[in-house]
Computed example of a mutant assay.
Amino acid sequence: MSEDIREKVKEYYSALQSSGDLKTSVCSCSSASQEVQDIIDGLPAEVNERFYGCGSPIPPMIEGCTVLDLGCGTGRDVFVLSKLVGEKGRVIGVDMTESQLEVGRKYQDEVARAYGYAASNVEFKCGYIEDLAALGIADDSIDVVISNCVINLSPFKEQVFSEVWRVLKEGGELYFSDIFVDRRMTEAQQNDPVLRGECIGGAMYIEDFRRLMRRVGWDDFRYTASRVKHVDDAELAAKVEGATFFSRTVRAFKLPAQLEDLCEQYNQKATYLGTIPGMPDYFDLDDHHRFMKDVPLDVCGNSCAMVENTRFGAAFAIEGDRSVHYGPFPGCGNIPYDTGDDEDGGCGCGCC
């Protein structure tokens, strides 16, 4: 049955010629930064017209990085990343729909020339995002993994996240946008080919996603953005009546020895130096941690690790270490997840 779902999704997206062919706006992109939007505006029209995404999962400070895009489609985000990683960086796009990849490959050299590169730093691979090993993507080889409204389509979600964990380097980042829901979808809803193709039937129940992430290795992850998405097709809305859907962007770092399942107090402070490109005044780690330039911020051990022991480390000055523990970080507790619009109610571990 799961393989059948995957084939139906492939058929669904093979038939689409533009985002206007979708029946709902659930899988539609929210606003990007001005820098990213300027890059998008310069891409070939066909690449942009056949883009299907629900967010803008383009993280900062990726120059020189190797970035993997899961479910890259025609390559819109791949080409944005290609510009941002620079000529010495590398971008790999994976998708199971060959007709989508053909569009990206058609413009690959043209985009590289437009960026002034001697050769393209982009590679497109046809395959399944839950089996990256079959595509030759090695353990601990990727700096950043992104995805834009694709993981919900997979019937093998735990395998997807396990593969991401495998290929990421220690300190590497998973940064993705997708559709979440406030309850579990029924089997009939999950198997409905139109609901699935519209990113509704496979939407991830928020609490099951939290549990899945912990099983794979992420004891803490963060949300950086959230927006309620309305099913604007009456027939499809009737099939999922009562459910509330969200487009959310998730940030998770592979720090297996440093992240705990609760925010713990070690009396640490982190000061942002204002050196992340495009972010001279502040840096948002997530939706509830804004680091202002030159202003020390008390942080839990997890938040400190996320800015100290990742590629962001050069942009922060850290005070303190983990030699003395002071109990749970003030204000933390086992708080149920808040599903309100635009507010995420804390970090992925549900403790802030």
Rank of each mutant, 00 (worst) to 15 (best):
D298G: 14
E260Q: 13
K10F: 15
S141N: 12
H325N: 10
G331R: 15
L68G: 05
S19Q: 08
L101N: 00
F329S: 02
S2E: 11
A314K: 11
P60D: 15
N334K: 09
C29W: 13
V47H: 01
F161N: 03
A305T: 07
S14I: 12
E123R: 10
G333T: 02
C72Y: 01
Q258N: 11
V295N: 02
P328L: 15
K157F: 06
A234F: 13
R113F: 11
Y52Q: 12
E3Y: 13
N191Y: 13
D69Y: 13
T310Q: 11
E319D: 03
Y12Q: 08
D41C: 14
R184T: 07
Y12D: 02
S25M: 01
A45I: 13
E63N: 09
R196N: 10
D38R: 04
I206A: 10
P330L: 10
E308M: 13
L132G: 00
G274D: 05
V94K: 03
H289G: 14
E46K: 12
G202L: 07
Q189N: 06
C29T: 15
R215V: 15
R105K: 14
I62G: 04
K269V: 13
R166E: 08
M96N: 03
G327W: 07
L70K: 05
M213D: 13
F156H: 11
V240C: 03
A118W: 05
Y337C: 09
N334L: 07
L236H: 14
K23P: 00
C300K: 10
G86E: 07
T244M: 02
K10R: 11
S303E: 09
V103A: 12
V164R: 04
P60W: 11
I39P: 05
G42T: 04
G73H: 01
R105V: 10
A32L: 03
D41Q: 06
F312D: 06
F329K: 02
N121Y: 01
N309S: 14
S154Q: 03
E264V: 14
I62T: 05
A305V: 14
E308N: 09
T97Y: 01
R290A: 03
L84H: 12
H230C: 07
D139G: 01
P57L: 07
T74S: 10
S18V: 00
D38A: 15
K169Y: 08
I129H: 11
C65L: 10
R311S: 15
S18W: 00
G172Y: 13
A270R: 04
R90Q: 04
R311T: 14
V160W: 00
C304T: 15
C65D: 06
S33F: 06
D232L: 09
C54T: 02
E35I: 07
I137G: 01
P193S: 09
D69F: 11
K157Y: 14
Y13V: 06
D182R: 08
I62M: 15
K157G: 07
K169Q: 11
D344P: 00
V111W: 00
K229V: 10
V295P: 01
L153G: 05
I5T: 08
